[in-house]
Write a protein that binds this DNA or RNA. Structure first.
Lengths: 235, 235
DNA sequence: GCAAAAGTGTTTTCACTACACCCATGA
DNA sequence: TCATGGGTGTAGTGAAAACACTTTTGC
């Protein structure tokens, strides 16, 4: 109660606005980057494809709001989540004047998650098959895709997109799919090994070849050391 | 009136919040990057140093709000202005729950502008002499400074910070001051000339030496071509 | 034994670094 | 004539690019 009083003492002459958070959720599966979309549950544009989001209440931090949306619809906690951009045109939403603060996140698409996701009338789309979206959500997605590519230069995003144990060919395919061009596999290995942020395990993944590919793990300690020095993660 | 009706049809169950824009204004003068700060005019924290900003009205785009603040307090229009980040912790402002969308901008500090600025109880501070600021404004500034350095990698920010005609030593000093370290002047020239985005003029600036330094202009056409290809502007 | 994916080295090329001296001019 | 800032070239180093063959093994 005291808080309430404190918080309403000033600025009383100014008009308030609706504020929402929306999330662009990326995942990686079958050698492709994917995007999680939802059937919108409210008017206007009910049942059209949309990002997931909700209104921010006066009692929660905006990041908290984004992270709780994520948890509610995917069951995931503590995953990569970063603010992208705030959309604030007057008529961006015909339903009302709404400021939308957009976050993007990176997840591993796995079986558990799929079940939660199916419950909410949602679907993973490959990046080249994204349907028309409500409001300015397509613009949000395209900004997020650009940001994602930028992000690869400062951060080894494989950490969040691949399973804990992964093979070199998997990592290689991830980067090819992200950059949308062919890379040289030998140079790729050299570059990655030069970074020295992977631990090679004594196990092999034999699902995709007879020979089998060695499994690796990210070494988060070494990664954090590099990050402090401002390492350049470009491939 | 029709608009009003349209805009209030949906989402009526949700609580609204105060939304503000704040601007981090950078300038360059006397070989130093500077920051424009203002004495806060409202309670709480009246008369403390602060970024400039104001509340967003329901009838204006957020970018419009940021750009009009800038115009009101510096007299400048059409200058570099980009969204930085949105701050939205519940208690970031003890005056009330306020979402703050922060923009940053780059300007040329010139005599005209100075007069407008003096009128508003404001002052340019060198980056290493920034006083304590109200609320979370110091965090905003430090985020803006990091962004500024990032930005130099994708954009020749000299365009917005230097006068239209400038000398190589001026540009060189700007980058040294931005990166806060000594650079090699010969390598710097080579790099810049390699980019091929400057036009060398047939005039010299003799204010700082007897020999005089050639003046250059940015060639915006060539710059835009490079930008499309995703050129790397790192020094 | 062969198909299919995994894994490995060398040479070339190019960009970045380091480094020191001459030039033009006003006072 | 000299002090001051402006301007230039070259050799060395290291990272990135280009490029093709061998290994493993389930079928």
């Amino acid at each position: 109660m005291l808080e309430e009083v404190q918080l309403s003492t000033f600025y009383t002459d100014n008009e308030k606005l609706l504020v929402a958070v929306d999330s662009v959720i990326f995942g990686y599966e079958d050698g492709q980057m994917k995007l999680l979309l939802f059937k919108r549950k409210i008017e206007p544009f009910k049942d059209k494809w949309s990002l997931i989001g909700r209104f921010v209440s006066p009692k929660e931090d905006i990041r908290e709001a984004a992270s709780s949306v994520l948890y509610d619809y995917t069951g995931l906690k503590n995953i990569f989540l970063e603010q992208l951009f705030t959309f604030g045109k007057v008529f961006r939403d015909p339903g009302s004047r709404v400021i939308s603060i957009v976050y993007y996140s990176l997840t591993r698409i796995n079986d558990f998650e799929k079940k939660v996701v199916e419950k909410y009338d949602s679907k993973w789309f490959s990046l080249n098959e994204i349907p028309e979206l409500v409001l300015d959500h397509s613009e949000m997605v395209s900004k997020a895709r650009m940001k994602l590519i930028e992000k690869t230069q400062q951060y080894p995003i494989g950490i969040d997109l691949l399973p804990e144990k992964f093979t070199m060919p998997q990592l290689f395919n991830l980067y090819q799919s992200l950059y949308d061009r062919k890379l040289d596999d030998r140079n790729f290995r050299k570059k990655i090994e030069g970074m020295n942020i992977l631990k090679k395990l004594n196990e092999k993944d034999k699902r995709t070849s007879k020979k089998g590919a060695f499994l690796y793990k990210f070494d988060k300690k070494k990664y954090n050391q590099l990050l402090k020095k401002g390492y350049d993660f470009r491939i």
